[in-house]
Design a protein around this nucleic acid. Structure first.
Lengths: 131, 131
DNA sequence: TTTAACATGAACGTTGAGGTAAAGTATGAA
DNA sequence: TTCATACTTTACCTCAACGTTCATGTTAAA
């Protein structure tokens, strides 16, 4: 079967253009993060522009640090409702939670940096090693 | 052999009081993160206050995000510290390296937090979700 | 003496996000 | 038609930091 080269891509090309591997795309499909694309009669996946838009959304959200599990939750909501208005509040919630977690992490790391620098200072004081 | 109940604990009690398992303590010992504690003649570990101090330090550092591998490196240096003047500059270097890594991590997380809040803002703008 | 707690050591399980290999099929260009 | 690629699925591998269980044996405290 012929692919309409303008609108549709198969997995390898798409993966390259997105900077991921085919494994990733298949995994996401398997986890239900993205809809299964159409196939040729021979079973080859081909992705429409709409598919690609969805995948980009998933990648974007992942880049923000959400886990696949969290994204599965979003996908589930999406499939139940098909309404973005339903998803978005939940996405907001998740993002907010995530942001909070990040800030907690930052606070911890800052405290660690302070501890280390304090430890360092004491060593230097004691052994007189310069900075 | 009798334990001095005031100062020394054996592994189970200590683990409980620290909120870890005995497995963790034995593992850390095996990895060289903490010094092997004294044993009774029968082979039972008992930990002095100093041992416990060390363990708490390790747990704190771990909690703040250093890997066991990184801590092994530090522990190695720490043990070499017995010949101070030679090794201290190296310890300082390593601490500085860790500190830098921490700051890099912090910067990454901060930028991530900004991205998220920006993304969130756009969603809210678009879908009009309050808060 | 009994019983809880300890010891060693092996070895498999878990989680997250894929990597990699094997073995077979489809596609498309020459 | 043949050949080189690209594709398909299945299934095992990786890393970290332990958890868990098994198996078996020893010690210490009441």
């Amino acid at each position: 079967m012929k692919l309409n080269r303008e609108a549709q891509q198969q997995i390898g090309e798409l993966a390259r253009s997105l900077g991921v591997t085919t494994r990733t795309l298949r995994l996401y499909e398997q986890l239900g993060l993205i809809d299964p694309p159409q196939r040729t009669e021979g079973g080859i996946r081909f992705y429409t522009r709409e598919d690609i838009r969805r995948i980009k959304f998933v990648l974007k959200v992942k880049e923000l640090g959400l886990s696949l599990k969290q994204m599965q939750e979003l996908a589930e909501i999406y499939h139940q409702t098909k309404m973005p208005d339903r998803i978005m509040p939940r996405l907001i919630e998740i993002l907010d939670g995530h942001t909070e977690a990040i800030h907690r992490k930052i606070r911890k790391l800052s405290s660690l940096a302070r501890d280390i620098s304090e430890y360092r200072r004491r060593i230097v004081e004691y052994y007189g090693i310069p900075r």
